[in-house]
Design a protein around this nucleic acid. Structure first.
Length: 531
DNA sequence: AGTGCAGTTGACTTT
DNA sequence: TAAAGTCAACTGCAC
């Protein structure tokens, strides 16, 4: 019987269990579907499609080398399945489990219903460390280690083809809607997709590039080279988390051999940081798997109504376009618009800035970032948006100071001047707070603040203080502590050894002397996006 | 040599 | 993955 392998965010052939198992069972139709509701989703942009296209091209080549091919169709998934059903005498559907957004979750439920109605078996196989059907985090870390330790799935040498697939391609393939292409166009300077590039990044990172990982990842100047840059490949599955984890373990054992290179200890530290990010990658995705509502609803409901969706459209627009009047923030937003990438610390800073300084709802800033991040991964993204906005209730408020971040991570101002050329002739101490420049300094730098570069759109002296007061008014509410405990049970990390830093009390739920909930329960290193 | 003192550093607390 | 503040210990130096 026909085996339909449905590719989604798993655009690879190596370590692909559904493909391997289907190939052992019968003739295979390798299918990718351009779905109008997925493509039209408000978190989707043209650059995502571009990266996917590049992955699919390579996937097709790899399948042809094994006697098969990729069939790409367009339409709503139940309609596509109905066509396949009419053309075949029934089939088995294979795919990886997906932890997606509300649109793909609803689509999956429609697919499941269609399969049930038609008597079609749908075999969904887990990929990476996300566990379906969990209600809390007890035992999660052990299961992650077990998943990552399982052998990688070998590519079948030959994948038998279904005779009718040519007919099908002609009958069903239509050009997918390009309606959004002009609204959120592709980025010429974004990272390119395809498994070959992903594998090359993994190899170059583990071989040598990771020397600069820990020292270079936090700065926007060095981050683009120092970071692994695998995040988009993980998001679209052109490289599996498991193959990355096992490659890292192999590299570690090499570096532990006697006579390893002189800088082995630096590389081992980098490896440890990298492995820990692979863990956190799944840890954050698991939050959305366990509670899909966190895509649009506050994780800690005590924060409902604190910020209003759609409020301050002028501030949102200025933030999106990089004209807030805060040079470090604007430089980051402009780099992101051009390249589709920003290192982790700067992502945290711009998100924090939108939520605290500008008091924007994380849904509004988060949707823009979802389209801007080439490596957008829903589970990581919405967890991070909420964490950087203080709405999880279980993390310390992390309100970033864009001036301090600039001084710490762009001390010479190269990054700011590159992306905010209006300020290119301003010298460093004043560069990060141009609203403080004297009229004569502005004149000599050829940049009048308020004319050539904006005045800050919110008052630097009061914006953060007001935000902090609003946040603490929620946290002081006694009911907030109970809700925070419930959030921790659902989502908090249980593994104290995973928690970075060992000085403070971490990883256990307890009340502080003042009766507020112990902060920082879920403290962790950043997941891989931007790291 | 020991003391006083301004300035620095680091651990820890508060928001 | 924060930032700002407190406080005690420490340092270098003048006397």
């Amino acid at each position: 019987m026909l085996q339909v392998v449905w590719f989604k965010r798993d655009l690879r052939w190596h370590d692909h269990a559904p493909l391997a198992r289907a190939a052992r069972t019968g003739p295979v139709l390798a299918l990718y579907v351009d779905e109008p509701d997925v493509e039209g989703s408000s978190d989707r942009s043209q650059q995502h499609r571009g990266f996917v296209d590049e992955c699919l091209e390579e996937l097709d080549v790899a399948l042809r080398a094994r006697g098969n091919r990729l069939v790409r169709m367009a339409g709503h998934m139940p309609d596509v399945l109905e066509h396949l059903f009419a053309l075949s005498s029934g089939f088995t559907l294979w795919s990886h489990e997906e932890t997606g957004n509300a649109v793909t979750f609803a689509r999956d439920r429609r697919v499941a219903r269609w399969c049930r109605d038609r008597g079609i078996a749908w075999n969904e196989v887990p990929q990476h460390g996300v566990v379906r059907g969990l209600r809390d985090r007890d035992g999660w870390a052990v299961r992650w280690d077990a998943r990552m330790s399982e052998p990688q799935i070998a590519v079948p040498d030959a994948i038998a083809r279904w005779r009718t697939d040519d007919t099908l391609q002609r009958a069903l393939s239509t050009a997918p809607s390009e309606a959004r292409a002009t609204v959120h166009p592709d980025k010429a300077e974004r990272q390119r997709g395809g498994r070959a590039r992903g594998v090359a990044l993994l190899e170059s990172f583990l071989a040598d590039r990771m020397t600069d990982y820990r020292a270079g990842m936090s700065s926007p100047v060095t981050g683009a080279e120092a970071c692994s840059r695998l995040s988009a490949h993980f998001a679209y599955g052109s490289v599996s988390i498991r193959e990355a984890a096992q490659a890292a373990w192999l590299r570690r054992s090499e570096l532990l051999q006697p006579g390893a290179r002189r800088d082995a200890s630096i590389l081992l530290q980098a490896l440890k940081a990298f492995e820990s990010r692979l863990h956190w990658h799944c840890h954050f995705m698991q939050k959305l798997e366990t509670e899909p509502e966190i895509e649009w609803r506050n994780m800690h409901r005590g924060h409902d109504g604190l910020r209003v969706e759609g409020a301050h459209p002028d501030r949102l627009g200025a933030w999106c376009e990089g004209r807030t009047g805060y040079p470090m923030v604007d430089a980051c937003m402009r780099m992101l618009a051009t390249t589709g990438w920003l290192n982790f610390r700067m992502r945290a800073m711009v998100t924090s800035f939108a939520s605290y300084h500008l008091w924007l709802h994380w849904r509004d800033s988060g949707l823009h970032l979802a389209r801007e991040f080439l490596d957008y991964e829903p589970g990581i993204h919405w967890s991070q948006c909420q964490m950087q906005s203080g709405t999880t209730g279980i993390n310390t408020l992390r309100i970033y100071n864009p001036v301090k971040q600039a001084i710490d991570h762009d001390p010479d101002g190269h990054f700011v001047r590159r992306w905010v050329p209006e300020l290119s002739r301003v010298s460093t101490p004043g560069l990060f707070e141009p609203w403080k420049l004297s009229p004569s300094d502005q004149r000599s730098a050829g940049c009048v603040i308020g004319r050539d570069y904006p005045m800050p759109i919110v008052d630097p002296a009061t914006a953060v203080r007001e935000a902090r007061e609003r946040m603490w008014s929620v946290r002081k509410n006694p009911a907030a502590a109970d809700e925070a405990l419930a959030v921790f049970r659902r989502h908090g990390s249980r593994n104290p050894s995973r928690e970075a830093g060992t000085v403070r009390r971490r990883g256990t739920a307890r009340k502080t002397s003042k009766g507020t909930f112990q902060q920082d329960l879920d403290f962790g290193e950043p997941p891989l996006q931007g790291g």
